[in-house]
Structure formats: C-alpha cells, structure tokens
Amino acid sequence: MTALVAPDAGRWQSWSAMISDFDGPGEMHGSGEWNLSGPPVPGRDGCAAFVTMTERCSPADPAGTRVPSTYFWIAADDGATDDELVGFLHLRHELNDFLLAEGGHIGYAVRPSARRRGHATRALRLGLAEAAALGIAEVLVTCDDDNTASRRAIEKCGGVLEDVRDGKRRYWISTRA
C-alpha cells in the first residue's frame, strides 16, 4: 500500500531518515527543496523549515515563477502517523512555460532504499486522483530520458509520450478513469 500525506513536522524522524537516504538535494525531485536557502537538514528544526517552505511555496507568486500547487509526502502504508516516509510528490495545479517544457504537473521521487516496490506508480496514481479532484483533465508528467524506472511508472499509469525535449520525456495522462 502507499498513501499521500500532507507535510507534517510531527513526522520529523521519518522525514529525517528519508532525506538522509537520498544521494543529495538534487535527487529529491518533487520535494520542492530547491526553494530552501540550503540543503534540507535532518532533525526536528530542519523538518519544520521544510514544512514551512511547502506552505510558503504552494500559492502562486506575483512574478509568475511559481504556480498554485500541493506538496505531499509518500508514506509506505496507509498514511498513519507511524508510517515510514518513502518519498515526495508535488502536484502543480497549472503550468507555466517552464513546467510545460520540462517540469509537468506532477513531480515525484522515492528514496533509494524504498525503490522497486511500486511506490512511485501507486503515488503517481494517487496524484492523478488529486489532480482529477481539482478539475485537471490531463496532466503532464516528465522524466529524464534515461530514467527507465520513472518511465515505466508513468506508462503504467497511462502516460502517452508526446515527445522528448532536451533529454526530458514528456507524457500526458488523462485523469478520467
């Protein structure tokens, strides 16, 4: 089972273990960590700062560099407070020029120790349901051209390849079941 949960500083221990498992901040696609002033710091305070960042970055900004969005953490089971956190999913409610070119509506990452267990595919399906609830009929999901695991997850969720641009595979997925 896999669940999407709202970022919550009360889950700081599991969050800390999760971010420590990634090879570095750039590996945490979907997390929004690039909006921090530095890499995420494991611990209670680091988690609280991360949660604050997700809240601050969710609305659109006047400069148009951010769009309205919702951040989720991926939990390994049913989303209970004691579930292990295994990843990130970021749902953008609309696309700007950058997101249309390479970022898409949904970005996600699963921690290395939890990969190859189906979490990415299940989390993406849950993200598609969240997008449908927002009235988004089709979502764009992208991955690096050489990311076979992400490509497979996207295709299992109904992704139809539109093209490859600058090393990014661009898939459209209908949210209508």
Rank of each mutant, 00 (worst) to 15 (best):
L134Q: 14
W34F: 12
G38F: 06
H29P: 00
C47K: 06
D146A: 13
Q13T: 13
D166V: 01
G24P: 09
I19F: 03
L89K: 01
M28I: 07
A76S: 15
L91Y: 02
R152P: 00
E33Y: 06
I173R: 01
R111I: 03
R117H: 14
G46V: 10
G135T: 05
V5E: 10
D21C: 02
V110Q: 04
L99H: 02
M1H: 13
A63G: 09
G46E: 12
T65Q: 14
W172F: 13
A80F: 00
S174M: 02
P25S: 08
E27D: 15
S113E: 11
F72R: 14
R152W: 00
D77L: 04
Q13A: 12
I173C: 04
I106T: 10
G30P: 01
R170G: 12
P68A: 11
L124R: 05
P62K: 11
A49N: 15
R117E: 09
W34K: 00
H93D: 15
P68K: 09
G87M: 08
P7L: 02
R152S: 12
R165P: 00
M18A: 14
G118D: 06
D166S: 11
G107Y: 09
R115C: 10
R11M: 07
L36K: 05
I154W: 09
A6I: 11
K156N: 14
E162I: 07
V5L: 08
C57A: 15
R170Y: 02
S16D: 08
V141Y: 04
T148R: 08
A149P: 04
R122A: 14
D163A: 14
F98G: 01
I173M: 01
T175L: 03
I154H: 03
F98M: 07
R151T: 15
V86R: 04
E94Y: 00
A120T: 13
L126C: 03
R176H: 11
L126S: 10
S69M: 12
P42T: 01
F88L: 09
E130V: 04
